[in-house]
């Protein structure tokens, strides 16, 4: 869907992006991670032609990017930025309907779509449609920003540190919502962040950048299991890598069927992560947990030994 092939960007004497190659298949979530100035935002902005690349090829949906008219291209790509960029003189409904109106949808179509998106993003229409950006909290404003980006139903969604300006609690909530949205809508997403945990949580494909180059890319699990160099490893949390890996695996994938012994005292729902399982084991001083389903019925068992052994096996089967 999106393909960057040996793409570089130079500003006068500085090289912001140096020979990167990257593929994001349709419907996948790609996260660009790195410290400030590593070129991740520049890369993002080359995709909707806010910046023109100096070398290499960018191919969108099978066509070279030069073929597209830049203005029309941007109307077909959703774009979310950190400080929302909502127009302060328009209310929420009008802000969300911006691109559909630019695309000359009829007023009823726009209205229907705005309401649909507000529902999707958890903003009750009656309460929020007529509010102005300055009347919204940070989290609410960013929801509007995402709704605005999705309004014309683009295939591609570009997000530039969208949750960076929010407090940790709101940030986590919005990350969860984004994950839920993505599971439902399957957009092709390119997401820039400097927060590795956020990237690990959301991405299908993770790209670590440094000084304009891609240091490593792959699935989160693959990177966690085999970081390419100490830089990537430190970005992945160094020693904490193990826990982060565990956070990405579900209990239900590693439980064993119930044995003949009595069920363990502590219960853990099947769709929790291994990291939460480890935490529960520490908390309850137990090396065995009973796995329950959503009705609290025991369906299996999870042991500490199992977790450690599985981790080893997983390394061997690292999926790309």
């Amino acid at each position: 869907m999106i393909e960057l092939s040996h793409v570089s960007k130079r500003f006068d004497e500085e090289t912001a992006v140096d020979d990167i190659s990257l593929r994001v298949p349709k419907g996948k979530f790609c996260a660009l991670v790195g410290t400030s100035g590593c070129g991740k935002s520049t890369t993002l902005r080359m995709i909707n032609r806010l910046i023109e690349h100096s070398e290499g090829e960018i191919i969108l949906d099978g066509q070279a990017i030069e073929v597209y008219d830049p203005v029309k291209l941007r109307r077909r790509i959703g774009y979310v930025i950190q400080h929302t960029g909502l127009f302060p003189h328009w209310n929420v409904a009008r802000n969300i309907g911006l691109v559909p109106r630019l695309l000359k949808w009829s007023a009823t179509e726009v209205q229907a779509r705005v309401e649909e998106l507000m529902d999707l993003l958890g903003l009750p229409v009656g309460e929020f449609a007529h509010k102005y950006p300055h009347q919204l909290s940070g989290g609410q404003a960013q929801r509007v920003g995402v709704a605005r980006a999705l309004a014309a139903d683009p295939d591609i969604l570009l997000m530039d540190e969208p949750f960076g300006a929010l407090d940790p609690i709101t940030r986590e909530k919005l990350q969860d919502e984004l994950a839920r949205l993505q599971a439902r809508l399957h957009k092709t997403v390119v997401f820039v962040t400097h927060d590795m945990d956020e990237a690990l949580k959301l991405a299908d494909h993770l790209v670590v950048m440094r000084e304009g180059r891609i240091v490593q890319q792959g699935s989160p699990l693959a990177l966690l299991q085999q970081p390419a160099d100490p830089f990537v490893e430190s970005m992945l949390g160094g020693l904490e890598r193990g826990l982060k890996q565990a956070a990405l695996t579900r209990v239900k994938d590693h439980m064993t069927s119930m044995g003949p012994t009595l069920p363990a005292q502590s219960r853990i729902p099947a769709d929790f992560s291994l990291r939460q399982a480890l935490s529960m084991m520490l908390r309850d001083h137990s090396d065995r947990l009973a796995v329950v389903d959503q009705h609290d019925v025991p369906i299996g068992e999870l042991s500490l030994r199992r977790i450690i052994k599985e981790a080893q096996l997983d390394k061997g089967n690292a999926r790309e």
């Binding site: 203005v71 941007r74 691109v99």
Partner: peptide, 10 residues
């Protein structure tokens, strides 16, 4: 930021 957003929206 607002001007950039407008530009980026198309």
């Amino acid at each position: 930021t607002i001007k950039s957003a407008a530009h980026a929206m198309g």
